[in-house]
Design a protein around this nucleic acid. Structure first.
Lengths: 366, 366
DNA sequence: TTGTAAGCGTTATCAC
DNA sequence: GTGATAACGCTTACAA
């Protein structure tokens, strides 16, 4: 009835998995249920009606054969793979991995599977080869979750975007033609600094991330803005550049204190550097917050258990991922309809979590 | 010369992406280079020789057309997708995400792309649907990186394994037919405890992870072993069960101290709970390590900057990922050759990092 | 070295 | 409601 020809036999003979019976196909199912392949397909996808009796027979055959539809073949003809490519880096850090979880959740909810590509060097990414591979795999959309460092987005242009599936960018400065979703880091920096100003602190230093990083510059800009608002000068000797690691927090505070012994507050631009700051304070016998108030950024779970617990800026990292995927999904659907979507820019507002490192009175460690 | 028939035209007309020219195929390239599709294929894969002149023409055509080979189609005929499925959970924690990075690195080095599936509930995973999907996508192999909690591996059986691609398990108790790579958590627990014994501590408590977790039980077993070796009794009132979070470290230490005011050392089974322990000590005015020596587990980057810096057990998480992928690759290649591979069990040895929380003399914070 | 054509496992079209 | 059949884009005997 169905004969697949000599090639089929050859494949069976040379089957790479010799000690297994060949994987059943939709044709095997059809044969066993005494229907055509098309009917099996319809029974499975429900795209066209199938009588209850046939459906039953089909399902039975599937069960007996242990049939698994081949999604590769399905994607080939459907011209859609229900797959999202995600390019990320720095997954060993809290922020990126938290965001990835958010991305996966929303992707899963929308029926996408994730194809993960991690960049080994976020600074000089070989963007083209990664993106080409993703495009070759026919992903439905791409999430670029690589922090903006130096000119590592130089490859990005409107014309390049046209050669790619719908794409969304995380944590990047707005660019023509690109859809971006970020935390408002500038606002975060301002929140932290205003809080210290309101506490009456007079000499507020900042330990930034690497200036190469866009996020670091934004948080610094927020600090500047808040100081200027208050009529203070954002003096250069109040700024030290760290590298996001705790060790640099410690080292930078040493330098700041050497220059400005009158320092009475410091904004460390992430929680890890803030941890280094706290350690430095303990070592020097500085009381926090009495002698030095400290604010961090990120609100890692641990920060509530530092000693003292850390006042910090919280970004909604998982939500960042959710929104990115939802927006990407919208773009994909729109393009399927042939509609042209205008690029969107989303800026998520962070919030301040006040804890012991700035508020000596309240001992609660929320 | 080549005419693809009415369907091709229809596809062009109903092209989902109407404002774009249809994606070029290998046939378009062939036509433009005045060769056959097979030759283009050979030029691209190098599987069969192609004359220099033809290759040049082909490459030119590819360039001009912006052709991207369709990996879906290629995988369909090759019966291999160069893809690894990874099922993971708890990615918001340091351990799992660090391991994922290791996995991705090695996978990348071996030419695999990763398909990521995160389990929303590691306790009662819907393993079958996730695995079926991965199998339907025809991944070449699967990495199960879900911690063993309760009976969340109940689905696993030798017969089920036979229906799946080659598979490797992380951090799980050995099982017949399954290849596993884990850290030797029992050894880790013993290392930590022996260290405290050698320091002359007499009453050594333990704050475990949830007993539901295999890893937690193993670390506890290591503590027991070490105490028994030294002729001490692993008394029940020295044990408290935490939940891996810092808050539970704090709470558990309170309970331990209430029962055993003579406690002079505690082994917290991860660094986060150890952080909670340190906080509790500060709050109660206990000196670390003079009054209470503290050891953690994991060696997170932050632990070196706790106050005091934390003595902890280091597992090579990235290496765990490397080894898992390398082993999986071996299994895949073996099965391709039709060879039957015996399941392998790998146990990675952890090591102890001694810092201030147990060694008051040495102030270095390596 | 190159072309022809069958085949990978699906879905969609068009009759019946 | 169901069955042939062509098509998705690529690889690979086989023949030339």
């Amino acid at each position: 009835m169905y004969y697949n020809g000599p090639f089929y036999v050859a494949c069976w003979l040379f089957d790479p998995i010799m000690n297994r019976k060949p994987v059943p196909t939709i044709i095997d199912v059809a044969r066993r249920a005494n229907v055509s392949a098309g009917t099996v397909s319809n029974a499975l996808t429900g795209k066209r009606p199938v009588s209850a009796r046939t459906r039953e027979r089909v399902m039975l055959a599937i069960e007996e054969l242990g049939y698994q539809p081949n999604l590769l073949a399905r994607s080939l003809v459907n011209r859609t793979s229900n797959t999202l490519g995600i390019v990320a880096s720095g997954l060993e850090f809290y922020g990126p991995s938290r965001t990835l979880v958010g991305i996966e959740q929303e992707a899963n909810a929308l029926g996408y599977t994730l194809l993960l590509d991690l960049l080994h060097s976020p600074v000089t990414p070989d963007a083209d080869s990664v993106l080409d591979d993703l495009a070759a795999r026919r992903v439905d959309g791409i999430i670029w979750a690589v922090h903006e460092i130096g000119d590592n987005h130089a490859w990005l242009s409107e014309t390049r975007l046209r050669t790619l599936p719908p794409m969304i960018f995380l944590t990047m400065e707005a660019r023509p033609g690109a859809s971006v979703v970020s935390t408002d880091n500038r606002m975060g920096g301002a929140l932290a600094t205003r809080h210290l100003l309101e506490l009456g602190r007079r000499v507020i230093g900042i330990i930034t991330g690497p200036k190469q990083w866009w996020e670091a510059r934004e948080r610094l800009a927020g600090w500047r803005t808040a100081l200027l608002e208050a009529g203070r000068e954002p003096a250069a000797d109040l700024i030290e550049e760290g590298d996001w690691w705790a060790a640099s927090g410690e080292a930078c505070l040493q330098k700041l204190l050497a220059r400005r012994p009158d320092l009475d507050a410091v904004f460390a631009c992430n929680d890890q550097m803030a941890l280094g700051v706290l350690r430095c304070c303990h070592a020097r016998g500085l009381r926090v917050p009495e002698d030095l108030a400290v604010v961090g950024f990120d609100s890692t779970p641990e920060s509530a258990y530092f000693w003292p617990s850390l006042t910090t800026v919280r970004q909604r990292l998982a939500q960042l991922g959710h929104i990115a995927v939802a927006e990407l999904h919208r773009m994909i659907k729109a393009r399927e309809q042939g509609e042209e979507t205008a690029p969107t820019i989303r800026n998520l507002q962070p919030s301040l979590i006040v804890r012991e490192s700035t508020a000596p009175v309240d001992t609660s460690s929320t």
